[in-house]
């Protein structure tokens, strides 16, 4: 498997080793994947990205970006980056920001000009291209940030909280841009605390806590591993009110939770659904909907962090 990012024992300490921000991280991000890095505040997500980009100096271990030693400037030749809480120089316009970072990325001339137009168009900022960044709203600055990260059509793009400060419509647009980049073959490394966003955009994730990777894999793998949901099924039934007999019968089939418009039942597996429907129909209960309830990423994430806290793992100090 070709890797866009690979770290081996990557670590970062502060205050002469007294604070461990990254603890011997081993991480693999395959080329072409949309990779999401999750973790509570202070987990070390941004530190990891900054370390990979040498904005923060690693204390130990090694890493490669697209197969090149991350310490070499060439490793960043095909890399784009949107930092969290960026502050582009207020004296530049949106197009000026793109021009500056485009030049730093090695673009020039007509190629640079056409890419600036294209990327600003893509993030919906063409009309604002000649307005100074100091006059932008946070959402607009974020879009320009995304545009500059895409300049040079990098093969690997780090996005640190890309939808931070963006309205819901804007978030949707940014997610579409990210998906489009994935389709074009770029590897996306997404840092976000918005779990639903990661779930929608990413195919692989890693969960980080106290400077270490707790789990990494596909979204489904992680949910199933953490929630222990393999085989078990939670089903929501929207029905007419159950009489006492029907309710008694349903309760025998598994853990039962009543709701305003029906009930939620934990069944041993999908094979148990049809007999239950038959039984409800036989008891003259009207069935409006049967919805399988999947454990989501948020639930898995919270459980994983709680498990670690219960086990007393970690602590960066």
């Amino acid at each position: 498997m070709e890797l866009a990012v690979e770290t081996k024992g990557l670590s970062k300490t502060y205050k002469r080793g007294r604070i461990l921000a990254l603890k011997a991280l081993d991480l693999q991000v395959p080329v072409g994947s949309a990779f999401g890095l999750l973790g509570p505040n202070g987990a070390g997500k941004s530190t990891l990205v900054k370390t990979l980009l040498t904005i923060v100096r690693a204390s130990g271990g090694s890493a490669t970006l697209l197969g090149i030693d991350f310490r070499k400037p060439e490793a960043r030749r095909n890399v784009g980056y949107l930092p969290e809480g960026h502050r582009f120089p207020g004296y530049l316009t949106g197009a000026g920001v793109c021009e500056y970072f485009g030049r730093l990325a090695g673009l020039r001339g007509a190629d640079l000009a056409s890419q600036i137009r294209e990327k600003l168009e893509l993030v919906g900022m063409s009309e604002w291209a000649d307005v100074k960044v100091s006059r932008y709203s946070k959402g607009m600055a974020q879009r320009v940030g995304l545009a500059q990260a895409m300049l040079g059509n990098p093969k690997l793009i780090f996005l640190d909280e890309p939808t931070d400060g963006v309205d819901p419509l804007g978030r949707q647009e940014i997610r579409e841009v990210i998906k489009r980049l994935c389709r074009q073959g770029s590897t996306i490394f997404l840092n976000s605390h918005l779990l639903s966003e990661v779930e929608q955009v990413c195919d692989r994730i890693a969960v980080m806590h106290h400077g270490r990777i707790l789990k990494q894999g596909s979204v489904r793998e992680i949910i199933e591993t953490v929630t222990g949901g393999q085989g078990a099924l939670q089903v929501r039934f929207r029905t007419s009110p159950l009489d006492a007999r029907a309710r008694q019968s349903v309760e025998k089939r598994g853990p039962f939770t009543p709701s305003d418009d029906g009930f939620v039942l934990n069944l041993p597996g999908p094979q148990a659904v049809t007999p239950l429907i038959d039984e409800l129909r036989a008891a003259d209960v009207e069935i409006f909907a049967v919805e399988p309830q999947h454990a989501n990423l948020e639930e898995a994430f919270i459980r994983l962090i709680q498990q670690q806290s219960d086990q007393g793992v970690g602590g960066t100090r």
Partner: peptide, 8 residues
């Protein structure tokens, strides 16, 4: 950050 993340 944005400057140092470039190949410089």
């Amino acid at each position: 950050d944005s400057v140092l993340a470039r190949p410089v």
